[in-house]
Design a protein around this nucleic acid. Sequence first.
DNA 1: CCTACCGATCGGTAGG
DNA 2: CCTACCGATCGGTAGG
Lengths: 218, 218
Amino acid sequence: MNLAQSDDGIREQVQQLKRERVIEVAADLFHSRGFGNTSMDAVAEKLKVTKPFIYARFGAKSELLAEICSRGIRSSLLVLDRVLASPGAAGAKLRIFVHDFVLAVLRNQRNLTIYSREQKHLLPADAQAINSMRREFDRKFTALLIRGHADGDLTIEDPQITALAIGGIVSWCHIWYRPEGRFAPEETADRICELVLGRTHARAASTGAVRTAEPAHI
Amino acid sequence: MNLAQSDDGIREQVQQLKRERVIEVAADLFHSRGFGNTSMDAVAEKLKVTKPFIYARFGAKSELLAEICSRGIRSSLLVLDRVLASPGAAGAKLRIFVHDFVLAVLRNQRNLTIYSREQKHLLPADAQAINSMRREFDRKFTALLIRGHADGDLTIEDPQITALAIGGIVSWCHIWYRPEGRFAPEETADRICELVLGRTHARAASTGAVRTAEPAHI
DNA sequence: CCTACCGATCGGTAGG
DNA sequence: CCTACCGATCGGTAGG
């Protein structure tokens, strides 16, 4: 019994591993060449298997795409849920969230790039499922900002447009971030955090990306 | 001679009009269905012409795409060049630029969405030409921030990452903006401007998207 | 899970 | 600038 269980476990793990490899290679090719320029034959060839090996695991090319895109979006939602479930004031939560959100985007850079490009190649049902994750993210994020403002913990003029702006700064990282560039992911997260929220410990009122000179100075 | 000239003028205008119509219809279809899901037959059908009508004007499907993408990126670069050529301090220029940059993105929403999705379907030469416009934009924008900081007109920690952050907020508009939504383009531009640069006239030190409560308040 | 193949789509063009 | 067509690619599967 123990042996049988162990066998099943290994068999499942092997299946899981094969599945992961397919997803990984597909994501790699979809990212570098584009979904439309990547044939299933090319994916199979790079995996050194034949097409039916892939079709035994994924019903269609678009299903593979859906899995890749879901992972990208889900990662951000998971980070948000984790932060919301943790204790602390809204301001502190926001800081932790922006930081971890950047890290999630950088870790999922490839998946998010593929999603942003290839949405139109998703089956309607898959597109809808992913879209509902995005809406859930927006709703929860905006709610966090509203709560922080209501608590007097954050000063925000318009929570909705602020959520879109912060989302924009962080999401845009998937466009410009290069692993071989100036900053490691952790440092990038810190700098973006500082840009969005300011260094509260250093100068309480000096926050925001850009500060125009105060009238008194002119 | 006058007549001949006038004839030529009209003929050219008609040719120009036909060309524009092809681009417009193609952009419409590429945007709503995706480039890969849009056949040249579909473009021709919607224009109520045959394919050779299109191929007389554009050598290939990807050439049509290149024109659409170029327009999207060029619009932002033109706005930046216009603001840089105008008189004024860096801080004032930045404010005008952010405002007009938002308007340019909203006017070119469709072209920019297509570009962000379909880059991989561009011919290498076209992709390179567009990429060099993007690099020119980044270089000039960063230089504006550096100049503003050197003049003491702006307070910026890291001009490069600040340029990417502002670029992210504004570019991201093409993802979420809906013409039928809460804000007209002009109002959207004002609000994003305020978010990025603060209301210098109202509260000199209160700028940035979010301000955490000052320690004294806790 | 492999070999071999089919059927459909579609960019582009020859010929007039 | 239209009619008619070709040639290639490729997602997916039948049969074993």
